[in-house]
């Protein structure tokens, strides 16, 4: 594994301590609450969808530096994107967005936010169909 100093780079800690898009959206269209049972990382995402695109997105949560920084980065990245595109974001491309290389044991933390965003959209589409 990488040195601990490489895992907790300044850029990551910056996102952790001052996350982008932290908060809630009232009257959001899609919402999902997820957690990582192994370590208790927790995240809730709120998405406003307009014309098939992510118009606004926010999150709240508690957890390790990697999970919370990844949420900040993921929400920033999907803003403005088509929901179809967001659903298709692969684990690999999410990991590449991070300023650090995540060890195997921490991949789940790093992907928690992306998974919650994708599940929120799928749930939203499901209720629309009904």
């Amino acid at each position: 594994m990488e040195l601990a100093e490489d895992m907790y780079k300044e850029e990551l800690l910056e996102h952790y301590k001052k996350p982008q898009n932290y908060g809630k959206i009232r009257n959001c269209d899609a919402k999902y609450h997820d957690f990582n049972p192994v370590c208790g990382d927790e995240i809730e995402v709120y998405i406003k969808i307009r014309n098939g695109s992510v118009k606004d997105i926010k999150f709240t949560g508690k957890g390790c530096a990697i999970s919370q920084a990844a949420a900040s980065i993921a929400t920033e990245s999907v803003k403005g994107k088509k929901v179809e595109e967001v659903k298709g974001i692969s684990n690999e491309s999410m990991l590449q967005l991070l300023p650090i290389k995540v060890s195997n044991l921490r991949v789940k933390c790093a992907l928690l936010a992306l998974k919650a965003i994708q599940k929120a959209i799928i749930k939203y589409e499901g209720t629309k169909l009904q």
Binding site: G40, S67, R106
Partner: peptide, 26 residues
């Protein structure tokens, strides 16, 4: 101000094995 998971990760990089988490006692 440090999540237990981050503490354990850094300790691991020093060769120290501890447990960080809810210890099956949520």
């Amino acid at each position: 101000d440090v999540h237990p998971h981050d503490v354990s990760s850094i300790l691991d990089s020093e060769g120290i094995a501890v447990r960080g988490g809810h210890h099956c006692a949520m």
